[in-house]
Design a protein around this nucleic acid. Sequence first.
DNA 1: CTGAAAGCGCTTACAG
DNA 2: CTGAAAGCGCTTACAG
Lengths: 330, 330
Amino acid sequence: VPVTMRDVARKAGVSVKTVSRVVNDQSEVAEETRQRVLGAIDELGYRPSKLARALVTQHTDTVGLILGDITNPFFLEFSRGVMDVAQAHGYSVFVCNSDGKQPTQTLALNTLVDHAVDGIIIFPAYESEDAMKAFANHYQPVVVVGRFFEHPGIGLVLMKSYQGARLAVDYLVSRGHTAIGMIAGSATPLSLMQRVEGFRDGLKDCGLPVVDEWILPGDPVLEHGVKAARQLLTEHPQVTAIFAYNDLLALGAIQACKKLGRRVPDDCAIVGFDDIQFASMVSPALTTVYVDKYKLGQQSMIRLLEMLEDPGNSFDPIYVDVVLMVRESA
Amino acid sequence: VPVTMRDVARKAGVSVKTVSRVVNDQSEVAEETRQRVLGAIDELGYRPSKLARALVTQHTDTVGLILGDITNPFFLEFSRGVMDVAQAHGYSVFVCNSDGKQPTQTLALNTLVDHAVDGIIIFPAYESEDAMKAFANHYQPVVVVGRFFEHPGIGLVLMKSYQGARLAVDYLVSRGHTAIGMIAGSATPLSLMQRVEGFRDGLKDCGLPVVDEWILPGDPVLEHGVKAARQLLTEHPQVTAIFAYNDLLALGAIQACKKLGRRVPDDCAIVGFDDIQFASMVSPALTTVYVDKYKLGQQSMIRLLEMLEDPGNSFDPIYVDVVLMVRESA
DNA sequence: CTGAAAGCGCTTACAG
DNA sequence: CTGAAAGCGCTTACAG
């Protein structure tokens, strides 16, 4: 039996409106009245229904967070950043799982709208460019992380993926590698992936040819890293270094090398991306491109908050820095 | 401008009630009318407001999930299990972070109630026994994971922690260790922790003394593992094996050994608990007690669903099995 | 400084 | 098979 505002009003001998006023700190209420109401609230253990309030105010104090494969520890720290900022600002967060698939993501998007969340953060965005924009036309604000979308109503938080990839290539070349492959991930078409672009441009600028057969797409999960690395090193044994789209893939590649009897980094150097929590603890410790995942999450939520505050405004993308962490695998 | 049921009714030339009927598949509606309504819904892009519905039906199709330190990869797979089952049954999930602290957890609990979630899963439960029971008296259902709470309205999902600890001890003793320490974690008082109980009983049953100074409590995070292991091995150099409350702590202990120049497992054997995703990839690969984290999550949500279906009933605890994974660290 | 009325977008008895 | 009225628990103009 939930306690309602009317119960409080009755107990305090005032109108419902007055209770509403003290609950929301609105306008002036006589101090004596206020105390009486506060007393009644306390005595009854009254807590205002966010649902009822939301129905009239049209905001729910909730946001939606759609994540790809939650199995990637990357998302752990990222979510933590989102949730800490959200909580500090009185927002609760619905977490959904797109499972790396576009239909599941669309479902999640619709469910969140049904629940009338005030805003949505999506990472990564598996929707097609058109679908995403169509969605953003009837629902706002949306913050997209890690993928470029030029569209009003969509906020952007990006890491410097292109630069990170170039750092990785430059480093590998400086170590004498000339035959470098890539395991590329699959969140979006290859042509849209900054990490792949950076990889190609890096190669070119070092005067090395870009061999398309050495760039393998696929899901960004460990198992695929094993498979892709095996394929790459078997079909193209001349490859002596691999740049992986993320650490999970890189870890998989290390396992593949072990199975193939290729020593890392001597027979095959491997560079990852993300610097997940365990990258430094595996053996060999992973050389990888660090990005502050917690900060990325914070920035995403902060940007969403800004868009909520100022719906008309358009915001520039936020870029989060990366830095190469040289360890043992390359 | 959201499309309302009234808009649909107007467009289809029927009453709001009829629209409601077809949306909810209630009773018989003339097929021709149904099609007309469906057409209008489609044309207008109408989606029923869960908020408005919730206000009258008193259920929101949402559940709350309160997690401890989300930084532990354990929670990744656990949440995935919860969310997959939730999603399959049409529930959305609010994820909150208790940050391993009781006040933060209480806050989360209250926020979830304010949002009128249909049920709550809490793991681990930092509330005191009394506080938890008091809460369960005015809000139900709650599923508590990994900690025993005998109380109506609280569902229990437990892993066989006691047995797991005994497996670890038996194994270490079988390898010739007689001076075994423990890094114990701190979710609840030591006396309530099944892993500690199992550890002590295991020692006793093997005819070994239980040395209280060799059992160090503390937060279940990596940094504390480093600190506790260093302290343990420095103050009590005769200790040759450590059983850790969880893998994060065990990983920290391995790092401490490296710094102290103690080889693992030769100079100090280490056994963890959980078998997180990376336990097998670190060096030395971690010997640990495996528990199916994904399944634990699934079972928790399934139990919550059962309690939702059948509020009067009382349910027996669910126990999830554990198995010792012998790898390199012990 | 305080209150009565209308309404947010639905569903629930109750009629017909 | 279909509809008019009341109500879920709040807030928003509008009065006084």
